[in-house]
Design a protein around this nucleic acid. Structure first.
Lengths: 231, 231
DNA sequence: CGGTCATTTGACGAGCATCAACCCCTGTGG
DNA sequence: CCACAGGGGTTGATGCTCGTCAAATGACCG
């Protein structure tokens, strides 16, 4: 594994408290692979043979049922996904595909489970990581159940704005995927952007500029218990 | 703490692998309390001072935002809730209230976190528990995003049926709370029950009888990756 | 230059919330 | 024992939100 990738994975909170020897052993058993855009990495219902780490690029987690399908989350570098299935040795609840070219580190689930047994620091880090994942999904469920679609769009934009220092930012994925993540159709996302023009939102292709955050916040009503990342 | 309560809590997977001395220490610091119905136990945004265990009765987890509110989950004995907030020492993301009289065991969060450090068996059990919680919320999010309200009701009934051996069963909570859990209004739940009559669903007050599970399943299309408890 | 695909816009309809009226049961106080 | 109030549940009427379908636009690519 290249030194840069090794270092960035090692820097993850999940692996940070791990003994050196154990981390080496884990990465020796792992595969770092390059993927083009729009490749399906895992399929819902499949066996959780690997823990995946997005080292570069972006991965979309999605779920299907009865002809419909929906984006569940977007995973950016450097973070893991499908941790829970790996740990419980249960089928994946979500599918995953790349949204752009990138690199994925794949660590055999069995090694993760072994490490959980023998490395207490790793077990503790895992507890914290899983608790964070859990809280993030709870927030997403609140987002879905307590807000209208326009409110979700507005708050999404405010969150993105916070992450980026500048005046404007680019949407990290196609609008169709974003719409699905926000629980709406692409058509409706388009209309939502239109409705938000009067609240200081300018959308031009993938670029977004918020010219009046006061006004936008007034209608979006952001809530730390739904929107904040840190907690 | 009464022996019966002690035993049932000890039997939880979360506490099962714990050293005896540690479990004793944990329960000595804990409070077992009796609560009447409709008492709010914790409030969204508050400090996570205790891990709660429902020993008897039923607890409703709910969340509020901007004048709206929604039921997030129903917790039945014997299980814990708000584990993640306790572990991360972060504010609660949900409020909790009793739906009927019952007993709650309250364990100081600080003791839980200490135990996580010193008892590796507990840390491992915690990983499994959190992974389960995570997967359950993911399923609920899929349920919300991929199904219509009538489908959610139908699948809820099928799930309840599986839990109860007999011909008929009682809804475990008021219909208004159930409606909120299923992401709909009480009025709409009522109409949904009406619409399901033609699929063999008979509702009389809190009692439900499913006279044609074949037909109901055909329209509900249950999915293990959304509805099964075990995974 | 033509084809494909994401996005946008408009028209329409389904799904669902809201509002209001009503029924029924329960508990309370006269 | 009865009158009454309160609350949950049901039903009907109405309208908003949002999904669906269709067509047009524009960008990108072979």
């Amino acid at each position: 594994m290249p030194a840069a990738a090794f270092k960035s994975v090692r820097a993850l909170a999940l692996f940070h408290d791990m003994a050196d020897a154990n981390f080496d052993r884990l990465t020796k058993a792992a595969y770092l692979q390059r993927f083009p855009a729009h490749v399906q990495l895992i399929e819902e219902g499949g066996a959780a043979d690997f823990l995946h780490v997005v080292v570069e690029g972006c991965v979309e987690l999605f779920a299907s049922h009865n002809g419909r399908d929906t984006t569940m989350a977007l995973v950016h570098p450097v973070s893991t996904f499908i941790l829970a299935a790996t740990l419980k040795d249960r089928p994946y609840l979500m599918s995953a595909r790349t949204t752009m070219p990138g690199q994925i580190l794949m660590i055999p689930s069995a090694d993760i489970r072994t490490m959980l047994e023998i490395d207490p620091g790793f077990a503790r880090a895992m507890v914290v990581e899983l608790a964070s994942c859990y809280r993030n999904v709870v927030k997403e469920l609140k987002n879905q159940k307590l807000r209208t679609s326009v409110e979700r769009v507005a708050n999404y934009l405010i969150r993105q704005q916070k992450r980026h220092p500048g005046m404007e930012f680019a949407l990290p994925v196609e609008k169709r995927a974003l719409a699905s993540l926000l629980g709406m159709t692409p058509e409706n996302l388009s209309r939502a952007f239109g409705a938000l023009r009067s609240h200081g939102v300018e959308v031009d292709g993938p670029m977004v500029r918020l010219t009046d955050i006061e006004a936008l916040s007034a209608m979006a009503r952001p809530n730390p218990l739904i929107d904040d990342f840190s907690s």
